[in-house]
Nucleic acid binder design. Structure first.
Lengths: 232, 232
DNA sequence: GAGTGGTCTAGACCACGAA
DNA sequence: TCGTGGTCTAGACCACTCT
């Protein structure tokens, strides 16, 4: 029925911090005092404190004690997936091209490969109920003997494409969101009559050694481009 | 010299996962086996495992064991602060207006207050080396007796403005990034000659009871609007 | 020297899963 | 019934901080 002791202590202490009864810089009671107060042992109290510490609410100085931290208001958690654009969920993905090309200057620079090096290009058109909402292009360094199964690619997100080769846990990612004007090939694919500003998500993947292993850009029609995040 | 035992075990196990020697779904050795293998006690092994579990690499089933998790490739950490736009750091903030207005329909809806309710409006112009790059507007519900010190507001980020009233830890935040075309008041402030697409960051703050306590929008000139995030 | 947090031990009992 | 992870205890020693 009742929750574990370390959960109870955790809740009480965290509530004091969240409600402002304990303010940033304030010192908490010592582990021994808390153990006595809750009639429990020091390891149990430490479990509660380490949970709160992991969440970033407090920090500790050896030999001194625990202090309430200053909250970082700038961090957010962003969930991005080119197949779930904001409020809309992409339910149709059309493969426009899967090919091997040679790297031009920009691709070579981003993927850190020599010019003219073979690179896989994957172009997709993403739609919501038959209406095209985004144009998506990926570049991957080409390795001989790595088969490309088109069916596996069609509805795959970028990390999934790359993870087939590398360990899924080894991938580091970078996102950059900005505005770009559409290029002719995009206008043609999305049936736009003129150049328009688009929300662009630039996605770069790196392996454990920080070597680039993938570059992707997704161009959203402005009315469908909404990227959301919330407090971490 | 040598690191603590639980750190050593942590590193070995995590490396096996990151390098792909242990794949998603694989079962780890039991706590007792690991304790024996490393000639240590079960609590020490548990410390290592709980660290890896907190990082999302493994999960545990009581009575069964620990398993390697399937990585979530969609989560990113976004650091946003209206005063640090992408690559550029805003070094000049000009207060255009600090005032009390009555809520129009849109403000009333977002802040969940009655129409005509008094609301504080703060408008700022953000610049990089004398060049205006962003227009920023905030709305806060007005409470009598809460003084507005203009000097404190000028270089404050949104959560800092609101945290003066509430506990700093109680604030929940939501971000929405999208494209909007500039309105006349923005064009005038940013010296734009015509309407242009802008990168808009919509920021909403809520208290512990999910009551809105602030609404802000920052309009970046498209060439300065770059929002970055990286793997969590 | 007294108190603090950091690390570690060697047990205990429980609920749960599998055979 | 046996092994698993989840909880908890009551100590120990260390490095550190403060006075």
């Amino acid at each position: 029925m009742s929750s574990p002791i370390y959960i109870q202590i955790y809740k009480v202490l965290k509530e004091k911090i969240v409600l402002g009864q304990l303010k940033p810089g304030d010192m908490l009671l010592s582990e021994n005092e808390l153990a006595q107060q809750y009639s429990t042992s020091r390891p149990t109290v430490r479990k509660s404190l380490s949970m709160i510490e992991n969440e970033g609410y407090i920090y500790s100085y050896p030999g001194k004690g625990y202090y309430v931290a200053v909250p970082d208001h700038n961090k957010y958690t962003l969930v991005f997936n080119e197949l779930h654009s904001g409020d809309y969920s992409i339910n149709e993905s059309k493969l426009l091209e899967v090919n091997v090309i040679v790297a031009d200057e920009e691709i070579a620079r981003v993927l850190q490969v020599p010019l003219q090096r073979k690179v896989i290009i994957i172009r997709r058109l993403l739609s919501v109920t038959e209406e095209p909402v985004a144009y998506d292009v990926k570049y991957l360094p080409y390795y001989r003997g790595k088969p490309i199964v088109e069916k596996e690619i069609q509805y795959a997100t970028f990390p999934e494409m790359v993870a087939q080769k590398d360990s899924a846990f080894a991938i580091k990612k970078e996102l950059c969101i900005s505005i770009e004007y559409s290029q002719p090939i995009i206008e043609k694919s999305l049936y736009l009559k003129e150049s328009r500003p688009m929300l662009v998500v630039d996605q770069r993947l790196f392996d454990q050694q920080n070597q680039p292993i993938g570059w992707g850009k997704t161009y959203y029609k402005s009315e469908y481009g909404k990227i959301k995040a919330c407090s971490s």
